[in-house]
Each structure stands twice: as C-alpha cells, then as structure tokens.
C-alpha cells in the first residue's frame, strides 16, 4: 500500500528567550526525532501524556508550525520545500480537527459559512452547486440543512464537533489530523463522533492521524499506533500487537493505568513515580530512565535506538538490546 504521509526524523525545537537582551537561552525539544509512515486509508494513533509532543507533531506535518529538522513527505512530495502556491493547493488535501469544539469555531459566523468559506475560497465547486454541496457535507456529518443559518453557540458540544468535522471534510481531503477530537465530549456523544469518523473513513477512503490520550478510544479507531514520550517515539507497530504485548516499560505503565469499567478485575498496576520531566532540560541517555523501574547503567548514558522486534513492531529501549 502506498504511504500517504512519511515522516523521517522530524524535529521541532521551540526557542526559549530570556536574559537582558531577550536572546535565545535554550530550546524546548517538543519533538525530537520522530519517524513514522501512514499507509493510505488507515488510521494511525498517537498516544502519550500531555506535553509529550503529539499535538506538535500533528501540526508540524500540516506545516501549521515550521519544523526545525527532518523531512515530511505527503504522497512523495516534500511538504517543507513547497512554495506558497503549492502549499495553498496542498491545504485542501490535508485538514485538521481540533480538540476543543468550543473555541475552534468563530462565534460570529453562521455554520454554513464556517463550513463553506474554504470551499469557496479554493473554488472547489461552481457557484450553482455550492449550496447543495454544503448541504450534502452537513448531511454526511449528521447535521440538518436548516442548521446552516445558525451560529455555533446554539449547538451542543457534540454537534459543534460535527461542525468541525464537516469543515475539515468540505475540502475533500485525503489526510486528516484529528487532534483529540473526542476528549471534550461526554461518553455517549463520544461514541457518536467515533462512529461518524469511522463511517466517513469508509466512504471517503480517508487517512487519519488520530492524536489522543484516551487509550481505549485509540485502540478502537486506529490500525497502527505510536507511543510518544517527551518528544520521542518509544514504541510503534500494529495496534493489536502493541495492545497484546506492550514492550516498552512506559507503554506497559500507560496501559496498566487505564481504568477498566469492571469492578471485579483486579490488575497489578504499575504506578509511575513523579511527573514527566521538562522538555527544555530532558534527562541524558534514555529520556524515560528517571521513571523507569528497569533502569540500567547504560540507560543513563546512551539513548537507545529503535529496534524492530518483528512484524513492524518497533521499540526504543535498552532492555531489548541483544
């Protein structure tokens, strides 16, 4: 299968300004060497704690923020080398759904305009077809055509997220970054939105990068999975493989922390001590060694490398050095 997105060794450093003259005193290494690829028509999940750089990765791929180093290929073309005109064309092919449906919609525009603005701007459909096109998109996303003249404040959280999805899909993209699309919603609404994303993927052959910290949601929606910790990918592979046998100690701890809706299951929980270290001053060697219970001498000195454990299941840990 052809890869829609290929990311190689992506780095994004945010400068820290300080001192008397406001010079750069250091860097926050939000994303520090991340590589993955997403085949067409599949979903890749990206999980990790807050501050591990998963959202930054998503945004850097779309060039909403400029990368520091590495390469991003979209259908074989280098995204970061594109000029303005090319990039503008690309914008219709890559879209994003944001986390908070309350703050990502303009309160002053009616819903029809929110969804249709970009369609008109890019001239995707003719003037005559425009209204029908918007109505169709809204219908696909579970909105009624009479919602077109209403304003975002008249909608509930779930419906707003539908508007966000409709806005992203109106441009007929190939690749959509879903940045925590269901985190702000109630359980029953969450299920509706996940089902909708599923249906749209089947109908339109979409490719998703699904960013979330809710592991149970990610397990349900994604085909492949990437676990991030402090700007690094620590484990990648097929979702089923990782959930069946997590290899990295961080993944293990993360999975054991998921609360299960069954009072009779008593699992052994791995409680991680302390907080995630600051990305401005990450620990030497393996970044996870400060919280890892299998920490060895070499973990403190040398950063581990990605190793393939078979079937595309890669892990980045010294425990698997042979």
């Amino acid at each position: 299968m052809e890869n829609v997105v290929e990311v190689k060794d992506l780095k994004k450093y945010f400068p820290i300004k300080g001192g008397f003259f406001g010079g750069v005193t250091g860097y926050v290494k939000a994303v520090d060497g991340v590589s993955f690829s997403i085949p067409a028509g599949t979903t890749m999940g990206l999980v990790g704690e807050s501050g591990c750089g998963k959202s930054t990765t998503g945004r850097t791929i779309l060039r909403l923020i400029e990368k520091t180093d590495g390469s991003i290929l979209f259908k074989g073309e280098d995204v970061s080398a594109m000029d303005k005109k090319k990039l503008r064309e690309l914008r219709t092919k890559m879209q994003i759904i944001f986390q908070d449906p309350y703050s990502s919609l303009s309160p002053r525009l009616p819903v029809g305009e929110i969804i249709g603005e970009a369609v008109r701007e890019h001239g995707l459909v003719s003037k005559e077809e425009y209204q029908d096109y918007i109505t169709q998109i809204m219908k696909d996303c579970g909105l009624q055509s009479y919602h077109k003249d209403r304003y975002p404040h008249e909608f509930s959280g779930g419906q707003r997220q539908r508007i966000c999805i409709a806005r992203a899909l109106a441009l007929n993209p190939d690749f959509v970054v879903c940045d925590e699309p269901v985190s702000a919603l109630d359980v029953s609404i969450q299920a509706q939105i996940i089902n909708l994303l599923w249906k749209l993927q089947e109908d339109r052959k979409l490719t998703y990068l699904f960013i979330s910290h809710d592991l149970s949601v990610v397990e349900h929606i994604s085909d492949s999975l990437g676990v991030m910790y402090l700007g690094n990918m620590v484990e990648t592979g097929k979702t089923n493989d990782i959930f069946a046998e997590p290899l990295h100690p961080y993944t293990k701890a993360l999975f054991s922390a998921i609360p299960m809706p069954d009072p009779e299951i008593k699992r052994e929980r791995i409680i991680l001590e302390g907080d995630i270290p600051s990305p401005a001053n990450p620990p030497e060697g393996c970044k996870f060694h400060t919280r890892c219970k299998y920490c060895m001498a070499c973990c403190k000195e040398k950063a581990p490398e990605m190793k393939d454990m078979g079937n595309g299941h890669c892990v980045c840990c010294h425990l698997y050095d042979r």
Binding site: S156, G158, V187, S188, I189, Q190, A191, Q192, I194, N195, W198, L215, S216, V217, E219, H220, F243, F255, I258, M260, P261
Partner: peptide, 23 residues
Amino acid sequence: VGLMKSKPVVGKHVKQLYSIPGN
C-alpha cells in the same frame, strides 16, 4: 446499559460503538 455499551473498552472489539440516540 447504554452508557456501558457506548464506552470503548480495551481488549473488546466491536464493529461499531453503541450510541444512545438523541440528546
């Protein structure tokens, strides 16, 4: 029952998540 069914559970695969209709 609806609440329980609509929550995705790790290790339990379903074709489609149950969602309570309406608001």
